[in-house]
Simulated scan of single mutants.
Amino acid sequence: MSEPHILLVDDDGEIRRLVTKFLRESGFRVTSVRDGREMRETLKSTSVDLIVLDLMLPGISGLELCRELRAESAIPIVMLTARGDDLDRVLGLEFGADDYISKPFNTRELAARIRAVLRRTTAQGETRLDPSWRFTFDGWVLDTRRRELVNDQGVVVDLSTGEYDLLLSFVEAPQRVLSRDHLLDAARNRVSSVFDRSIDVQVSRLRRKLGGDGTPDMIKTVRGLGYLFVPEVAKA
């Protein structure tokens, strides 16, 4: 199997040098760039498996680049944030990042998070052993072979890696209350802390994509317990 290709976007030359060196020693192929302009140019001519994207960049910010990427691609994004406060984390998830890590960070932890996101992405692209690979609910279809969500009008709805994992957890266990810890493990492959609200952000994003414009919510909040996927789900 070829080395996963990581695109590192950070304006700090020392961070680029150190992270690039460590990731290459850890079995990744790495291209590093300084800003959004160089990132765009690289993506025009190069295929990458994951982007490590700094929040604070000169010119267009990492958040805007994240939103731009997510509007046209489902490529996994790990966001680097200068601070560990909730606002940075929530904004990163709102704009479509699949994971985040706060500076200063441990390079081993960054590599572990990259591998976790890539494992989920790879698993999503493989044929499931279960012959039931399509889930239908209220006229919608989740195709796990193509990693596609199609709405009741036949339009494909783009999902980030985290949103896809979250929805898959719901359709595999419909009309059951799933705790935040369970969903966080499934959607982001890490253990939450008591105060981690990132799963609520992911649920909010997913609700909007499932038609949160006045239509009844498909995802019900069960106070103090977690969330419940309301529709009946059939496998095909």
Rank of each mutant, 00 (worst) to 15 (best):
residue 1 M to L: 11
residue 3 E to Q: 09
residue 5 H to Y: 14
residue 6 I to M: 07
residue 6 I to P: 08
residue 6 I to L: 08
residue 7 L to G: 03
residue 9 V to N: 00
residue 11 D to E: 14
residue 12 D to T: 15
residue 13 G to I: 09
residue 14 E to G: 11
residue 16 R to Q: 15
residue 18 L to K: 07
residue 19 V to H: 04
residue 21 K to Y: 09
residue 21 K to G: 09
residue 23 L to C: 05
residue 23 L to F: 10
residue 23 L to P: 12
residue 24 R to H: 03
residue 26 S to Q: 13
residue 27 G to C: 06
residue 27 G to W: 08
residue 30 V to D: 04
residue 31 T to C: 00
residue 32 S to Y: 10
residue 34 R to H: 12
residue 34 R to N: 14
residue 34 R to Q: 11
residue 37 R to W: 09
residue 38 E to Q: 13
residue 40 R to L: 14
residue 40 R to T: 13
residue 41 E to F: 03
residue 42 T to L: 12
residue 42 T to K: 11
residue 43 L to N: 10
residue 43 L to M: 14
residue 45 S to N: 14
residue 45 S to P: 02
residue 47 S to N: 14
residue 50 L to A: 04
residue 50 L to G: 09
residue 51 I to Y: 06
residue 53 L to M: 14
residue 58 P to W: 14
residue 63 L to T: 12
residue 70 R to E: 10
residue 73 S to K: 01
residue 73 S to A: 13
residue 75 I to S: 13
residue 77 I to M: 09
residue 78 V to F: 02
residue 79 M to C: 01
residue 84 G to W: 07
residue 88 D to S: 14
residue 90 V to D: 04
residue 92 G to W: 04
residue 94 E to W: 01
residue 96 G to N: 03
residue 96 G to M: 09
residue 96 G to E: 07
residue 98 D to Q: 08
residue 98 D to Y: 03
residue 99 D to K: 07
residue 101 I to R: 05
residue 103 K to H: 10
residue 107 T to E: 13
residue 113 R to G: 10
residue 113 R to N: 10
residue 114 I to H: 01
residue 115 R to C: 11
residue 115 R to T: 14
residue 115 R to M: 15
residue 122 T to F: 09
residue 123 A to V: 03
residue 127 T to I: 12
residue 128 R to P: 02
residue 128 R to S: 09
residue 129 L to V: 13
residue 130 D to M: 07
residue 133 W to Q: 10
residue 136 T to M: 12
residue 139 G to D: 12
residue 144 T to H: 00
residue 145 R to G: 07
residue 145 R to M: 06
residue 146 R to V: 00
residue 146 R to E: 05
residue 150 V to I: 15
residue 154 G to C: 01
residue 159 L to C: 07
residue 159 L to A: 00
residue 161 T to P: 00
residue 162 G to L: 08
residue 163 E to F: 00
residue 164 Y to K: 00
residue 164 Y to C: 08
residue 166 L to K: 01
residue 168 L to I: 04
residue 172 E to I: 05
residue 172 E to H: 07
residue 173 A to C: 11
residue 174 P to F: 10
residue 175 Q to E: 14
residue 177 V to H: 06
residue 180 R to N: 13
residue 180 R to F: 01
residue 180 R to G: 11
residue 181 D to N: 13
residue 181 D to G: 08
residue 184 L to C: 05
residue 186 A to Y: 01
residue 187 A to V: 03
residue 190 R to E: 11
residue 193 S to Y: 03
residue 195 F to Q: 13
residue 196 D to W: 12
residue 198 S to N: 08
residue 200 D to Y: 04
residue 201 V to L: 03
residue 202 Q to S: 06
residue 204 S to Y: 06
residue 205 R to T: 09
residue 206 L to P: 03
residue 207 R to D: 08
residue 208 R to V: 02
residue 215 T to P: 02
residue 216 P to K: 04
residue 219 I to N: 11
residue 221 T to D: 15
residue 221 T to M: 11
residue 226 G to C: 08
residue 227 Y to T: 13
residue 228 L to F: 02
residue 228 L to Y: 02
residue 229 F to W: 05
residue 229 F to L: 03
residue 235 K to G: 02
residue 236 A to L: 10
